[in-house]
């Protein structure tokens, strides 16, 4: 008994020491960022049992298609994905053949994608099919940069997994534009955003102790109120558009997220039950051995 308690005391003391040291640290990294905004109402897909809100994903797709898609590619997504189980336009009637869904066909048909004419070899534009990848707004990176003041609009396919905070970060960036504080020099064609990770020390004329948080971004504020008209009548505020497009991007970043969590619940229940049975077997087999 003495042996065990001494061991625990030492371990606790050591951990306490580490905790004190950890709490005392204030990292002095050059890159800063304002604490991310709270999303009103939160995201429905958060947490171990979270599920995607299909109406929100549909609205988010509309924001993407009408606003984001004019500059940002989404090369990992195909139109058929929109109708697969768990997708924004999933319909049970086409459960086994999502690419046959009229929603996907109609969405794809509205878009022209580049192709090669099989008879002449000429470069042509044809209506997309559900099997096509989302159309990229620019043919190549130099073209994208040339149209955006030298900046490359990043591909949005996995954006919600590629930034700290994910969907919350996307929401904060999209709604977080504010006028730059006096004393901050922002180059023409660039914009101040406190949620963009950056180091503004060199463009700040004030005291070193009051450098504004955040950085500069080449994308201007996009989601003005009413920019996108939602078909379901949801008021099209900046916050609503940002929340919906963040939801859509969370889904595109990991379309199997909900399937993963649902499978996880079943696996957990099974494993806990099975582990319990093994423990009882262990107790029974060892019951006569002093050890």
């Amino acid at each position: 008994m003495l042996r065990k308690s001494a061991l625990i005391r030492t371990a606790v003391a050591g951990l306490g020491l580490l905790a004190v040291i950890g709490a005392g640290s204030v990292a002095g990294a050059a890159t800063t960022q304002a604490p991310l905004k709270e999303v009103p109402g939160g995201f429905s897909f958060e947490g171990p049992l979270g599920k995607f809100d299909q109406a929100s994903m549909q609205r988010g797709f509309k924001v993407y298609a009408e606003v984001c898609a004019s500059c940002h590619a989404m090369s990992l997504m195909s139109y058929r994905n929109l109708c697969q189980p768990g997708g924004p336009f999933y319909d049970e009637r086409w459960k086994d053949h999502p690419a046959e869904s009229p929603y996907c066909k109609a969405i794809a048909a509205d878009v022209k994608v580049p192709d090669i004419d099989p008879d002449t070899g000429d470069a042509i534009q044809r209506p997309a099919t559900p099997a096509d990848h989302f159309r990229s707004p620019f043919p190549n990176e130099p073209a994208a940069r040339a149209s955006n003041g030298g900046a490359l609009p990043p591909d949005l396919s996995v954006m919600a997994r590629a930034r700290e905070g994910g969907p919350q970060y996307i929401y904060s960036i999209l709604t977080g534009y504010v006028a730059p504080p006096a004393g901050l020099t922002i180059a023409p064609g660039k914009f101040y955003n406190p949620y963009m990770p950056g180091d503004l020390g060199s463009s700040w004329s004030g005291s070193k102790t009051t450098v504004p948080l955040g950085g500069v971004i080449a994308m201007p504020f996009q989601l003005t109120a009413g920019r996108v008209t939602f078909d379901d009548g949801t008021p099209s505020t900046t916050s609503q558009q940002a929340k919906d497009v963040a939801t859509f991007l969370a889904w595109t970043a990991e379309p199997k997220q909900q399937e993963r969590k649902e499978a996880g619940l079943a696996v957990m229940i099974y494993l806990i039950f099975f582990t319990g049975i093994l423990y009882l077997s262990y107790r029974r087999i060892w019951r006569d051995v002093a050890h």
Binding site: L271, F274, T275, L278, S281, Y282, I285, W286
Partner: peptide
């Protein structure tokens, strides 16, 4: 049986 129990318990963490 003892290892089996421990492996199964470890899998709960893994699955999480």
């Amino acid at each position: 049986v003892k290892d089996g129990f421990a492996i199964s318990a470890f899998f709960i963490l893994f699955a999480w």
